[in-house]
Simulated assay, not measured.
Amino acid sequence: MSNAPLLEVENLSKSYGGVQAVSGVTFSLMPGEMLALIGPNGAGKSTCFNMVGGQIPSNEGRVRIFGRDVAGLSPRQIWRLGVGRTFQVAQVFKSMTVRENVEAVFASHQAGWGLLARAGKAHRAEAEAVLDLIGMADFADRPCADMAYGDVKRLELAMALANDPKLLLMDEPAAGMAPMERIELMALTARIAKERQIGVLFTEHDMDVVFAHADRIMVLNRGQLIAEGEPEAVRNDPQVRAVYLGEGLVYDQAAAAGKASVR
């Protein structure tokens, strides 16, 4: 790994009226690292995540991406810096084929949406290379409307990789997928992240995914970071165990095969 963080978040805070959604959150993310942001419902995960991605502004604090302060930048401007993004509910063009979806991202990044109609086909080879990377080359001509949701999620990952990002933001990537599909998607993401030295920040409720694939875990509760570290240390943290229903995170050696859980 490089010694320079891809993402630096410093004292990030957000309030809505009298409600403090996020308070003083600080962390960094290195190239090739899988960093999970977890916590109970209402902990502030989505707010924190969307401040990093530019969807909502912070009240205080700073976000630096590749060393640049991104305050005031739109999500699209942040994307164009080299930041990929996936969503809890997959965002694809259902009226297009798999290949056309990826071509659209290449065209938008290089030519802008105004030239999409005539620029899309120029990126056929690039789109097919990305689909091959994630194992969807055989799906290239399939209409998205006819695909299973797990395959739609994989396509969304391909679209997020189309602008050759060095930072990837994934909001609940396993949501709505079958258990084995979740494991396969995140194993694929982790492999690509290591090979291409992409830093991955992801939020996730599924502890199978978190403990099997995260290099580090951050735990939010009531807007504040209560724990941060390697998976085993976080699992044994007393505050974390108390937050998760008083019983904690149950994890053993089977986690690598997707057996971890929250009880």
Rank of each mutant, 00 (worst) to 15 (best):
D132P: 07
V92D: 08
S58N: 09
A174C: 03
L35I: 04
V102Q: 01
F93H: 06
K153H: 01
C48N: 05
G120Q: 14
A90M: 10
F66W: 01
R80A: 12
L73G: 00
L167D: 04
K45A: 03
G150Y: 06
L161C: 05
A43D: 01
L115C: 03
P40S: 10
G84Y: 02
A36E: 03
W79V: 10
D171T: 09
V63H: 10
N59L: 05
Q55W: 12
V83L: 07
L157T: 12
I78T: 09
R62P: 01
Q110L: 14
L161N: 02
L116S: 14
I78S: 04
G67D: 04
K153R: 15
Y149D: 07
V70Q: 05
M136P: 03
R99I: 12
Q91S: 03
M96D: 03
P173H: 08
N41I: 00
Q77P: 07
A137P: 01
W79E: 11
L169V: 05
T86L: 03
R99H: 02
V52A: 04
F139Q: 14
V98D: 02
N163E: 00
A160G: 08
P165N: 10
A129I: 09
Q55Y: 15
R64A: 13
D132F: 06
D164R: 15
L157A: 09
G44C: 11
V83Y: 04
L35N: 01
Q77D: 14
A145I: 15
L133D: 10
A148V: 11
R142E: 12
S95C: 01
E126L: 09
Q91M: 09
A137R: 15
